[in-house]
Design a binder for these strands. Structure first.
Length: 94
DNA sequence: CACATGACCTAAC
DNA sequence: TGTTAGGCCATGT
């Protein structure tokens, strides 16, 4: 797939794609995974800047306190919740 | 180059 | 448990 964005965004999106179905990662964890433990803020930005949602699982990015956080893509937070719940069921073979 | 923005994080009250 | 304040980073204007 073609990823159009800055090198940093590509890193973030690649990491998002590596997240297994039904799993979620905090923005901080993602930042650490790409080698920039203090760029969690920018990571969130990259997610919001992601024009390939939901092809890019940006909805698997949540806050460190376990809360969903936000979602700028079409459909809003409810869309994010649906995707997460659906993937969760899929991973549980429900 | 300087300033403002945001799907954040942590500590402190 | 809810709010405030400070710090941090890539991006866009």
């Amino acid at each position: 797939m073609r990823l159009d964005g800055t090198s940093f965004q590509k890193l973030v999106w690649s990491e998002l794609l590596s997240i297994p179905i039904g799993e979620v990662r905090t923005y901080k964890q993602i930042a650490e995974a790409i080698g920039r433990p203090r760029s969690y803020r920018a990571v969130a930005n990259a997610c919001g800047a992601n024009p390939y949602a939901p092809e890019i699982p940006c909805h698997r990015a949540i806050r460190s306190d376990g809360r969903i956080g936000g979602y700028s893509a079409k459909g809003g937070l409810s869309r994010k919740l649906e995707l997460l719940e659906r993937e969760s069921m899929q991973s549980n073979q429900k």
